[in-house]
Design a protein around this nucleic acid. Structure first.
Lengths: 136, 136
DNA sequence: CTGTGTGCAAACTCTTTGCATAAGT
DNA sequence: ACTTATGCAAAGAGTTTGCACACAG
């Protein structure tokens, strides 16, 4: 964890973001435990539990800055809630409707083919595949 | 249009929904012009423009009732906005990020394969494929 | 008549913004 | 010092809810 700090600081610097206390803390929560899918609120709670004082507004700001910097990917699944995914590569999700939980689907299994070209004058920015599931 | 009314009334009845003035009007706006993708707000405006007095709350209620009845499909694309799609069969979308516009992709072209089974104890309710595009 | 649907306004949830204060370099 | 980030509280957008009134069967 503490070992990751230098690496994290570099990532932030490279992204043009000053490595402030808050950004480092949030960065550690996000990136030190494999792929994660968090909402702003969830991350805010985690920070609090970890004894890091961060305001919710800052969590939002930080998540968006990380996203612009390419460190995170935004996933829109449902209603108002926005999820941020630490896995920025092309991959798909299961979404558990009951629990509001998002889980990776290993991409290499899935085949998405014959997508038509983007409409005239536009280009594809992202392809989202969400498989909604619920308890039977 | 007026010809569709009997058909629409039957659809509503079959769904266990009383064919009220509002539901018939909204139903006509939704189903008489091919496949549509609307937000509650958009539909509300249209109703107003068509001289039909409906409150926004009723539009929301109606859209949800239609969705439960299987007449519509809910599509979550971005942030707070929920789109309702009159095409309830399996198909995919282009989403224009700039304009917030949703467009069908004819399914028969696209191939989505090797989806893993739904996680233990769950079943798939819907598969959403959204190709985000933006102006170049 | 009887029960379901509607309209309104207020409440709610998630997210964003503005501005004074604090921290990074 | 100078600039960028943060915190707070308030505003905003979209959606939902509760309750009195209206309409369909």
């Amino acid at each position: 964890m503490t070992d990751n700090n230098d690496e994290l600081v570099d990532r932030l610097r490279d992204a043009g973001l000053r490595p402030t206390r808050q950004r480092k803390s949030l960065g550690n929560l996000l990136f030190s435990a494999g792929n994660r899918h968090v909402t702003a609120e969830r991350l805010h709670e985690e920070a609090m539990n970890a004894g890091v004082a961060v305001s919710l507004a800052t969590v939002y700001n930080t998540l968006h800055q990380f996203t612009s910097a390419g460190l995170l990917r935004e996933v829109a699944v449902e209603g108002a809630k926005t999820y941020f995914d630490t896995n920025t590569s092309q991959h798909f999700h299961f979404y558990h409707e009951g629990e509001g939980k998002l889980v990776d689907i290993p991409t290499d299994m899935v085949l998405l083919e014959n997508l038509p070209d983007a409409p005239e004058g536009t280009k594809i920015t992202q392809v989202d595949v969400t498989v909604r599931v619920k308890k039977k």
